[in-house]
């Protein structure tokens, strides 16, 4: 239960995930309230990407419960579709459709999934492109724009479906340094507008300034979870301390 008494919008309860013999997630339990901004960090292979990919069923969890906005994720296709309509995802490698222009990338899902008309979809797409500050790139193709611009298009594309929740899987890790801030700025705007977000990232500055909750994962488990201030200034576990030492060095 969150502070104002309503159900959390995302609930993970004792979630395990196996890839064959390898255990990627171990007894993971987490709740996220509406409007919360959660940052997940940890070393490579800690299970952070796997965890958020389980939330929109890009991966199937092996045991435990995952409930998103009241819909429990089971094998039921209707439940999965319902969840995916509410949850938007932004990938490390952008995954823009190369054979479609920017605006066509944005219009595809609303037309096919929400059956929006072409005119309406285009109007919404243009509005979102303005929101991410690149309306002039609308008719360009992904290969013709920079990495930072591509990622902003990817964010706009996810937003076109009016999601309640946005998942970010290392959104800036594949970007050249000078393009990271343009993407983070968009994410900060989103957070300020009240979007529920889970963000897997190494950008600790972003975590400090935007997150309500920082989650540290290692070897498939949630090791520590706290507010940013407590997390960065008073880490409790040794593993957390080691990790922070390693990344804050540079």
């Amino acid at each position: 239960m969150s502070e104002n008494g309503t159900q959390p919008i995302i609930i993970l309860e004792n979630v395990d995930k196996f890839f064959g013999d390898f255990q990627a997630l171990s007894n993971v339990s987490l709740t996220v309230d509406k409007g919360e901004r959660v940052v997940v960090c940890g070393p490579s292979g800690s299970g952070k990407s796997t965890m958020i990919r389980c939330i929109n069923r890009l991966e199937e969890h092996s045991s435990g419960k995952i409930i998103v906005d009241g819909n429990e994720l089971t094998g039921n296709v209707k439940d999965i579709d319902a969840v995916r309509r509410e949850v938007g995802m932004v990938f490390q490698s952008f995954n823009l459709f190369p054979h479609m222009s920017v605006v066509e990338n944005l219009m595809l899902a609303p037309k096919l999934v929400r059956k929006t008309s072409k005119a309406e979809a285009r109007e919404k797409a243009m509005r979102l492109l303005e929101r991410v500050r690149i309306p002039e790139q609308a008719d360009k193709y992904p290969s013709q724009i920079s990495g930072g611009q591509q990622q902003r298009v990817a964010i706009a594309r996810a937003l076109c479906m009016n999601p309640e929740i946005m998942l970010f899987d290392e959104p800036t890790s594949a970007l050249d340094p000078e393009m990271i801030s343009e993407v983070l700025d968009v994410m900060v705007d989103l957070a300020n507008e009240g979007m529920t977000m889970i963000c897997v990232t190494h950008e600790m500055g972003f975590a400090r300034s935007v997150a309500n909750k920082v989650v540290f994962m290692d070897e498939g488990e949630i090791v520590e979870m706290n507010t940013p201030a407590e997390f960065f200034d008073h880490p409790k576990s040794n593993r957390t301390k080691e990790f922070l030492d390693q990344i804050i060095q540079h």
């Binding site: 929109n56 890009l58 579709d81 995916r84 309509r85 949850v87 938007g88 995802m89 990938f91 490698s93 995954n95 823009l96 459709f97 190369p98 595809l108 899902a109 096919l112 999934v113 990817a154 594309r157 996810a158 479906m161």
Partner: peptide, 22 residues
């Protein structure tokens, strides 16, 4: 690229829609 199909999934496209459009 598998990532493109995952993006399609995440956007809510059905298997048939992903196959035809992506």
């Amino acid at each position: 690229d598998r990532g493109l199909l995952e993006a399609g999934s995440a956007l809510g496209l059905s298997v048939r829609q992903r196959f035809i459009h992506i």
